[in-house]
């Protein structure tokens, strides 16, 4: 039986005690540590660690509860953004950025958990392209919509192309991410990067998915993969025939 006082329980308890001590001593980061203690078990399992110490039903409940919590957090953030906007307080952009980071991570994690890197890579590129096109369309005036949307659509086309030539597209993504990252760093060094940390976070939200997509595409195709697929398909057919 999975005991209530297993190593994860003691680790979470230790973090909790540290949080209490920190709260009493320096009054800093203690609440975050308490959250870490609370979420230790489901987080470890999400990362594929200590699977034997985690009960499947408890995990099922944790995941469902987390989804409810995520939805509540999003609603809370939307309300907060609306309140801040009504007061003319521009910190709403920071709240918005946190929501976007959470959504991007959720989408990326979901795609990666499917376990098919090649498909995940191409879908990530297409999602980036669609978002670029959407934001372009919203920002451009009526006459200039197409010119704003076209770059995004070009990225979507890259996503489709990634299905045929994954490694070439992966290389292109690495180069693009490096160029984009270098450009941002250069602007930062020159002091021309506007928008504070938002000016860094925005590009990061493009660069990280590009790198992840590139990595997926690169790893998704092992040498001789096509040959392996060709071999596997007749076998599948044979199995069906035998089964019938």
């Amino acid at each position: 039986m999975l005991g209530k006082r297993d190593p994860i329980f003691w680790a979470a308890s230790a973090i909790f005690v540290v949080a209490i001590v920190l709260g009493a001593a320096v009054d800093n980061a203690w609440l975050l540590l308490m959250v870490a203690a609370y979420l230790l078990r489901p987080t470890l399992h999400s990362l594929g660690l200590f699977k034997k110490l985690i009960d499947e039903r408890q995990l099922h409940i944790q995941y469902r509860a987390s989804s409810v919590g995520f939805a509540a957090m999003l609603i809370g953030n939307i309300v907060l953004v609306l309140v801040l906007m009504s007061k003319g307080d521009h910190t709403w952009e920071m709240v918005n950025a946190v929501v976007l980071v959470a959504l991007v991570v959720r989408a990326l994690a979901g795609l990666l958990m499917v376990g098919d890197p090649a498909v995940a890579g191409s879908r990530i590129i297409m999602a980036i392209g669609l978002l670029l096109a959407l934001f372009g369309a919203l920002e451009g005036d009526i006459g200039g919509v197409m010119s704003h949307v076209l770059p995004g659509l070009a990225v979507v086309a890259l996503g489709f192309a990634a299905r045929r030539v994954p490694r070439a597209i992966a290389l292109a993504l690495f180069v693009l991410a490096a160029l984009f990252g270098g450009f941002i760093v250069l602007r930062g060094v020159q002091g021309q990067l506007h928008g504070g940390w938002g000016g860094v976070l925005g590009p990061l939200m493009l660069i990280v998915p590009m790198l992840v997509a590139g990595g997926c595409l690169w790893m998704g195709v092992a040498p001789g993969d096509d040959a392996a697929r060709e071999h596997s398909e007749p076998r599948r057919g044979t199995a069906t025939t035998t089964g019938a």
């Binding site: 039986m1 999975l2 209530k4 034997k52 009960d55 499947e56 039903r57 408890q58």
Partner: peptide
Amino acid sequence: QLAERVAVSRQT
């Protein structure tokens, strides 16, 4: 005992 045999909690 059953929970212990299949490595889950008794609540499960």
